[in-house]
Simulated assay, not measured.
Amino acid sequence: MIPIHDVNPLRRTPWVTYGLVAANVIVFLLMPAAAHSLVGQVSLGELCRLQAFVERWGAVPVELLHDQLPALVPTGQGAVGPRGVGCLLGPPAYQKSPPLSVLTSMFLHNSWSHLLGNMLFLAIFGNNIEDRLGRVRFLLFYLVCGYAAGYGFALTTPDSTDPLIGASGAIAGVLGAYLVIYPRARVWGLIPVLFFLPLRVPAWLMLGMWFVLQALYATGYGTAQAGAVAYAAHVFGFVLGALLGLTLRRQPRRLV
């Protein structure tokens, strides 16, 4: 089910949510090759620069757990050799802080669909959590959930050298909090059955089903693409967001 709108009025403009959406879009447009992926005209050089960019600014599980860079990383240059076309590797020419890479990875996306899907969920559900927590606490909540998702994923894949990117871990925390704070809020969504059928359902049903699917996918059930999507990061972010939401919903609403 694709959410399109929730029936949950706000008391104020969610400037932090809007700012996070804008920051993610701007960073994506500045990433090598990513902005051109919509038309599919991406050269080898652009792909290699994108790979090097993601390697530098993404969160790599091995680096997070061992706090050291690999001996070889993509240089951003393409090459044609006896084994075909690929990207050149070389010693890292930069210093990298693995803990800081979790923060930067939250603003990186590898395609328009990846970006727009995440921003849709953030825009629909983030505004009410910001309204409930206040702007400063919401931003801290968002970042904490993102860090929990990043390090949680690293613990489940300690030997992985594939960079983790995307805001979905932090957004999963927002969904977890929304589920426990506003379980009865009505959410309009589209169900792809032959064609897109609009339906209004309670938040607990939509977000609960979303979490169950993420948990199943994280174990490898129901998908052949489990290695391409960090479903475990979604699970960690969602669980922490729900736990924090349980404590925060008993507190009065904040205005700042």
Rank of each mutant, 00 (worst) to 15 (best):
M1S: 07
I2F: 13
V7G: 00
P9S: 10
L10N: 02
R11W: 08
V16M: 09
Y18V: 07
G19T: 05
V21D: 02
V21I: 15
N24W: 04
L29V: 08
M31H: 06
P32C: 13
S37Y: 05
V39K: 06
G45S: 14
R49M: 05
A52C: 02
W57E: 01
P61Q: 12
Q68P: 00
L69I: 08
P70S: 03
L72T: 10
V85K: 03
V85P: 02
C87I: 09
L89P: 03
G90L: 14
P98G: 06
P98F: 05
S101F: 13
S101I: 13
V102R: 09
V102M: 15
S105Y: 14
M106Y: 03
W112T: 13
S113P: 00
H114Y: 04
G117L: 13
L120E: 05
L122M: 09
I124K: 02
G134Y: 06
V136G: 00
F138S: 01
F138V: 08
L139C: 05
L140H: 03
F141Y: 13
Y147H: 04
A149W: 12
G150K: 08
G150Q: 03
G152H: 12
G152C: 08
G152Y: 14
T156C: 08
D159K: 13
S160C: 09
S160A: 15
P163I: 04
P163V: 03
A177E: 10
L179H: 13
L179P: 05
P183G: 01
R184S: 04
V193I: 15
P198Y: 14
L199S: 15
P202M: 12
A203C: 11
L207N: 04
G208P: 05
Y217T: 09
A218Q: 05
T219H: 03
A224N: 11
A224Y: 07
G227L: 09
A228L: 12
A230R: 07
Y231F: 15
V235C: 04
L244P: 02
L246T: 10
L248K: 06
L248C: 02
R249Y: 04
R249I: 10
R250G: 12
Q251P: 03
R253Y: 01
R253W: 06
L255T: 08
